[in-house]
Computed example of a mutant assay.
Amino acid sequence: MKRLFRILIIGLSTLALAACSQIATDANSLFVSELTEKEDAILSIASDKSFVFDFHIDSEYKEASVWIEKYEAGKLVDDRLAHLTTEVEQSGSIIVTLSENTNENNNSFNIGVGTDENLTSINVSDTDLIGLESMASVWGSTSEKVAIDNGEAVLANISYSDDENGMHSLTTDFFEDAAGHMNELEKYDVAYLLKVEFVK
């Protein structure tokens, strides 16, 4: 699985970087990558849920940190469930996939950051889950271009609940101002937030 994820990162990063060189974009920003049908198919085969983002930064930025926070009923229980810090260059991609193993009640996350010169990835499992097989899930990501010079940003979420009344995705307001809308996480039994920060 790790080898498949590494190949997937290299392939998607190469395609994303090639596409990025043809598109004029604002510096110091991050946005959801526009994937081809083939790239979507590869991600669907290799994982249950996935997120791909492209970034463009000034040379003053040297590192990117990507991590996953875990919440239970709105309370932070792990602020670094998965954490990756790596050197970055002016453009690249962030790829995050989730493979769910409901029989064993665990989630396996792969995080990768790729640029022209560097590829870094990690695989982390959350084995502290009970009743995952009986929960419904929703997931989503920011739909806006994210300015990376504002500090840490929430890029995506995956949330689980066994609420019989159904569940809704996080609001757009949450991604724009997570600190002011943390109460939205209280309606989920388990919620994961994908965060990023670029460092000079």
Results as ranks from 00 to 15, higher is better:
T115R: 01
L35N: 04
S125F: 05
W67P: 12
L155P: 05
I68G: 09
I42K: 13
I94W: 01
G11E: 12
N110A: 09
N28K: 07
S125H: 08
Y160I: 10
K200M: 00
Q22R: 02
V190M: 06
I111Y: 06
S121C: 11
G131W: 06
D54T: 06
L43N: 04
A41G: 03
F5G: 00
C20E: 14
K187E: 13
K70L: 12
Y188N: 02
L170A: 09
S91K: 13
K62I: 10
F198H: 03
V196Y: 00
S134Q: 14
T120C: 07
L43Y: 03
S21L: 03
V52E: 11
T85I: 10
V124A: 13
S65N: 13
A41L: 09
D54N: 15
S169R: 11
N101I: 04
E176K: 11
E34S: 11
M1Q: 13
F5E: 01
D162G: 08
G92F: 00
N106E: 07
S121I: 04
Y188Q: 06
N103E: 14
I111K: 11
A179Q: 15
E186M: 01
L155A: 10
W67R: 13
K195P: 08
S169P: 07
A16Y: 00
D79P: 10
S161V: 06
V96Y: 09
D173L: 09
I7F: 10
T171K: 11
T85Y: 02
L129C: 07
D128V: 09
I158P: 00
T25N: 03
L30Q: 08
E34F: 02
S29Q: 13
D173S: 12
S161K: 02
S159I: 01
G114Q: 03
D189I: 06
I148W: 02
E144N: 07
D116P: 04
I148Q: 01
E133Q: 15
R80H: 14
E60I: 12
D40K: 08
E197C: 06
I130Q: 12
I94E: 05
S125V: 10
S33A: 15
D79Q: 14
A24G: 12
Q22L: 05
E69S: 10
R6N: 04
S99E: 13
K2L: 05
Q90G: 10
E34I: 09
S134P: 01
V52I: 12
T85D: 03
T25H: 07
N101C: 05
V146T: 14
I9F: 01
V190D: 08
S99N: 15
L84V: 07
K187W: 01
T172N: 14
T172W: 02
K195Q: 11
G112V: 08
F198N: 03
L43G: 04
F55Y: 11
S108Q: 12
D128I: 05
S108M: 11
